[in-house]
Design a protein around this nucleic acid. Structure first.
Lengths: 344, 344
DNA sequence: GTTTAAACTTGCCGCGCGTAAAAAAATAAT
DNA sequence: ATTATTTTTTTACGCGCGGCAAGTTTAAAC
């Protein structure tokens, strides 16, 4: 008499599968920690009775869970949404459960996210910090309690490591390209950018221009917050209203600014693109998902989403699984790749 | 001797705050369930010792948690990212904890998300389903176990209710506008759209054209998946390569298709916009966050993000708090608003 | 001042699982 | 076959909190 009675807990499941409860418990902690034959018996029973352990009871006595927090500055930004998705996939592949949180560009929310994460005792956290606005002190306090790897944006000395882009290389790359194929670019950016990458890019631009023997031209627009397109639009409109420009080539600090700038150019009736006689050249940085649909399509430098996601997840998992903390903080930088489209 | 010893659990906290543990427990369940004077004493103690209840232990014996799942088809789509953010804010404001999950356009992932949610015994779920591709049967099974309100896309009869846009009204609105100000529009859409709203919009277009006495013109492009811009681009390129078009006005089924279409027009050198002599008019639907930065800026119909988010959260919370399930399934539709920009 | 309802305290059990220790069984090595 | 080693079983306890019941205090109502 096979009785398909309700499986209420692990004990019930142990009974029907003919295996002791502690062994079942071991199996759920790590399927490879039990002998192959037992594993197969458990998995056979698992298919017959779709039992799933109660995650709250599971995590109550475990000092560390299989949760991994992923915190990004802004989920409404397709760049971060895509990056987060890549990270998520890596975390799942490694058998962990991702918990995705966006900070909405707000430092308070960022701390709140970390606080909430701490409640669920994550095995580790992958954090793309806001940057300049971040409450670094409290983030650092958090990283002392929870293994944390930073990605995208670095905070000096915070966390177990950092994985991101080599802004010096990537900006150098596109400045080289722009100088080689036309007038040296001016650099279009926010005066007080929130993102630390922006400072690195500014420095990289200045260095590249110096190296090539050109005088740097900075255009720094006002604006706070994360509505970069709007800021790029406003700044672009102001720039294009000037009687003359220092260069017909504009390198934007990131693609979202460039998208706003292109929109301003379109509005102002300024022709943009390679073939445009007497027109402007505009380039960006990041290979934002939308940059291939701007008008004209945006020439930019790609960040290696996939590798950044893979490597940062890998680094965190390495630390978690080895139990090593704070040996030496490693910073891994990936090179950008030139993406030539129509705008420059 | 005030000893600031470590607070390990609720009992410790009860001791230092001078209140019994069950009362503390009550407070955390619902701060308004204790007398005002007690609440103030607890909150005072809470500031001195930053104790936070263990969420796993908390939820273990509770049949329902304060978690509310939010599932959207694709977090990389700024439209859904923004909608999800609005929903999140409403959920937080009501004192619940949002758990945000994206399905990456994949039905299997959508079910997986619901499965994962069930493990954390959510009080309810707000689900924007994939639509045609969704595994409706399994979603329905889920909604029988967990109070679920659908938003954005409807699945007939599934869940406690639906909150979304009135496609008939909004499409009628923009068809009216386009006919009033120029040639009647052709309708540019996917042949087999994933989203059920697309079918409603097609029907609404047909109805509106009939009402106005025009012959409908459907252009249905091939393409699967959620890369709408790419599909719009390809379909647009093909359409624009034709020797002649049935109309100089194109109404796209959604903004993302329109963004791709505009990109194709730009690439093909076709002028788009109101003032463009002999050019095209293009309109979209949704007021996608990027539609104000296209070139030219996109005329569209806005969906009321804020109200849809507010009302769907409200509906779910109402069901949760009243304990009423499955009384009558209500469908709430909000009207679209015409957003006139440069493209049409 | 008395009655009454509401809020609180005390004491205790249970939730579902992790985990430790010791004994038993299964497998591998000699 | 015997010994050594790994794996599983048995037994038992603990985690931190929810929730119940009965008694006690407090505040409101008469």
């Amino acid at each position: 008499m096979t009785k398909p009675r309700q499986i209420r807990n692990m004990e019930d499941f142990a009974a029907v599968s003919g295996i002791s409860r502690p062994t079942i418990s071991k199996y759920f902690n790590d399927p490879d920690s039990v002998r192959k034959s037992t594993r197969e018996r458990i998995e056979a029973a698992l298919e017959k009775f779709d039992y799933r352990p109660n995650m709250f009871a599971m995590n109550q006595n475990r000092r560390l869970t299989k949760n991994i927090g992923i915190v990004v500055p802004n989920l409404s930004d397709p760049f971060f949404a895509e990056l987060a998705r890549q990270v998520e996939m890596n975390v799942i592949a490694a058998g962990f459960r991702p918990v995705l949180l966006g900070s909405h560009g707000d430092a308070e929310q960022e701390i709140q996210n970390l606080d909430n994460l701490r409640m669920m005792k994550p095995a580790g956290v992958l954090l793309a910090p806001l940057g300049r606005l971040s409450d670094v002190e409290r983030i650092e306090a958090f990283t002392r309690a929870v293994p944390t790897v930073l990605f995208d944006a670095n905070l000096d000395g915070v966390g177990e490591g950092f994985v991101g882009s080599d802004n010096a290389q990537s900006v150098g790359l596109i400045v080289d390209y722009l100088c080689r194929t036309g007038e040296p670019p001016l650099f279009f950016e926010m005066k007080t950018p929130a993102n630390p990458n922006a400072y690195k890019r500014r420095a990289a631009y200045l260095a590249a221009m110096k190296r090539l023997g050109h005088a740097p031209m900075l255009v720094q627009v006002e604006g706070e917050g994360w509505d970069f397109e709007a800021i790029g639009f406003r700044g672009g409109s102001e720039l294009l209203a000037r009687p003359s420009l220092p260069s017909n080539t504009v390198l934007c600090s990131n693609d979202r600014l460039a998208i706003g700038f292109l929109s301003a150019a379109c509005e102002a009736g300024v022709r943009v693109g390679l073939g445009a006689e007497g027109g402007l050249r505009v380039a960006g940085h990041d290979d934002h998902p939308f940059s291939r649909y701007t008008c004209p399509t945006l020439t930019t430098v790609s960040q290696d989403y996939v590798e950044i996601a893979r490597r940062s997840a890998e680094a965190l998992l390495e630390i978690i699984e080895s139990g090593r903390r704070g040996r030496e903080r490693t910073e891994t930088l990936f090179e950008g790749r030139l993406v030539m489209r129509r705008s420059a």
